[in-house]
Write a protein that binds this DNA or RNA. Structure first.
Length: 206
DNA sequence: TTGTCGATTGAG
DNA sequence: TCAATCGACAAT
């Protein structure tokens, strides 16, 4: 059964639980890779200082201002790609960062593409590792995850229940918000690291 | 035009 | 604990 875009056209806080346990298929590398999301984070647009869309629309974040159910890929730290599922209606920006997943299909191919040797449950643990596993980068930015013809598709949503929440990883702004969602007892869930490490390191010396 | 810093990862 | 590495954006 097809996924209704309406379900994704809500605030990120409402969409995030639905994406936990959701299945994503990618044929970006040729051979299909299928994953089940185990960890996500909500990013609201205008109200969220940690969101790329907080200061309004730019060339980079334009996809987040479009319709829900599209892929927002961004480049970070000069070397990694991360990917969001856009939500909210057209004109309102919000997204859910995909942080970790369990690989259901194509695990050997994913492992073979990596230079670092990782244990299987770590192959898609962390947003950049997950993006790499699915072959998501700037070339995939803006893809419609609900289009059957798309090489990257959202195949099923999660149940929306049975998750845990906590502060977002690596985010300096709005640390009081419990906008990270994960499935308990999933080994692929990434380790928590508080945000703003760099600026706080400088502050300690001054 | 320049300088700062990031929704991270992997090695030491 | 820290370096890698570069694009976006705010400040000049």
């Amino acid at each position: 059964m097809a996924i209704d875009r309406e379900q994704l056209s809500q605030p990120a806080l409402a969409v995030a639980p639905l994406l936990l346990g959701a299945e994503i298929v990618s044929e970006a590398h040729g051979e299909p890779v299928l994953v089940r999301l185990t960890e996500v984070e909500a990013y609201e647009g205008s109200l969220d200082p940690a969101s790329h869309a907080f200061r309004g629309q730019t060339a980079r974040n334009a996809v987040m201002f479009g319709p829900a159910g599209h892929l927002y890929c961004y480049f970070v730290y000069g070397m990694h790609w991360c990917a969001n599922v856009t939500c909210q209606r057209e004109g309102a920006a919000a997204g859910v960062l995909m942080r970790a997943a369990q690989i259901l299909l194509g695990q050997d191919a994913v492992a073979a593409r990596r230079t670092a040797r990782l244990k299987p449950h770590l192959l898609a643990s962390g947003p950049a590792r997950l993006a790499a596993a699915l072959g998501l980068d700037g070339a995939r930015n803006g893809l419609d995850l609900l289009d059957p013809a798309s090489p990257v598709r959202l195949r099923a949503l999660g149940s929306g229940v049975g998750f845990q929440t906590g502060p977002r990883v690596g985010v300096a702004a709005a640390q009081d918000l419990a906008w990270r969602f994960w499935l308990p007892d999933e080994p692929s869930v990434s380790v928590y690291r508080a945000g703003g490490a760099r600026s706080r390191r400088r502050a300690r010396h001054t």
